[in-house]
Structure formats: C-alpha cells, structure tokens
Design a protein around this nucleic acid. Structure first.
Length: 181
DNA sequence: TACTCGATCGGA
DNA sequence: CCGATCGAGTAA
C-alpha cells in the first residue's frame, strides 16, 4: 500500500532532516515511452540556503536557480558537465532556496545514471512532484532501520570551501550484512 | 561575444 | 587519469 508524498509533508520538514527521511521512500517516474519506473531512494544530499556555498543559489539568483526559491515540492533539474541531468527536490518555504539532490536509488548508483534510467530530464524542471506530472514520491510504509543510515560530506563540492564541503549532508544506507562503513 | 568550469561517468 | 559535451555565469 503506497501513498503519494504530498507537498505539505515536504514543506513540514527541515531540508537536512528531509534528505535523511527520504531514504527508503520511493521515486516513481513515467518515462516518455509510458514505461513506469519505481525504486527506493538510497542516497541523497541536502543543499540548504544561500549561505551554503555548495548550493547553486549561493552564487546568484538567476534564471537557473530561480526554481529553488519556490515553495518546496517542485523539481529542480539541471544539466551537469553537458551530459548528465541532475534531479533535485526543492524544499523549504518560498524565498528560501534549498533542495535535495537525489543521488541514487536501489539498483542504480549515481545521479546521472539514475535520471537516464528513469527517463528524467529538464522538462520536469519547475514541475510539482505529483503523479500528474509523471514524477513523484511514494511512501510504501517501509521503515529503514536507523542503524543502517550513514551521513558523510557531499560529493564533488570542494569548490564550496572547507567549512561547507565538510557538512555531513549526504545520506545513504547500506544493506545489513555489509561491513561497517 | 569570449571565455571558464561544473552537485558525472566510463573508458584507457 | 582523462575526455566527452554544453549551458550557466561572468567579464568585457
């Protein structure tokens, strides 16, 4: 029994806490061919506010980052390295730019491979995370044992300087039975 | 208009 | 380790 994760739930949580909470929830997409994809989110990263030097919004409020200033519950999708579409969920209240990068789901490792596999690209940018748009989140009742969750620094954000690059805002989990890490 | 570089990935 | 590949951001 799965229920759609509504925008009001997304808005009710702090961005970092939400990134952690999203682990184990399902990402569901209907690709351009009409094929439905669904898998459990196993890796996320929080990007929180203009003061977070790893967050795109810390640079400038521009056409690209504008979507992060929206109220939580819409997608922020951008092209990275000219090749990879990066999927983010915008979080927080209006005028407070923050988002969560969906870095991985079970069976697929890496944010660029995830979007390619699910058929996700920039056409979802700015659209709400609802079944109507073809890209949404579900809670199927699965509860991840908290002992499996790991928090580490975010990947590929050395440009943000030592303080912000060190924030343990990347969350992921490892299946039980695989060594401590 | 001319640069530079990136929240990555796969292959050498 | 390096090249792919292209748009955003900045400087001019």
């Amino acid at each position: 029994m799965s229920s759609v994760i509504e925008a009001k739930v997304i808005r009710s949580k702090n961005t970092v806490a939400l990134a952690r909470w999203l682990l184990g929830k399902k990402l569901v997409a209907v690709d351009p061919a009409g094929v439905r994809h669904s898998s459990r989110i196993c890796e996320t990263e929080a990007y929180h506010g203009e003061e977070d030097l790893a967050c795109h919004a810390s640079r400038a409020r521009t056409a690209r980052t504008e979507v992060m200033y929206a109220e939580g519950g819409v997608w922020y999708v951008y092209l990275c390295y000219g090749i990879h579409e990066m999927l983010n969920l915008v979080t927080g209240p209006r005028e407070q730019p923050s988002a969560i990068l969906i870095r991985g789901v079970e069976g697929i490792s890496g944010p660029g491979r995830l979007t390619r596999s699910f058929g996700i690209d920039r056409r979802f940018n700015g659209l709400p995370a609802t079944p109507g748009t073809g890209l949404w989140l579900e809670d199927d009742g699965f509860r991840l044992p908290s002992g499996l969750v790991r928090a580490t620094p975010r990947i590929g954000v050395d440009y943000a300087g030592p303080v912000w690059a060190a924030k343990p805002w990347r969350f992921h989990y490892r299946p039980a039975g695989i060594g401590a890490r």
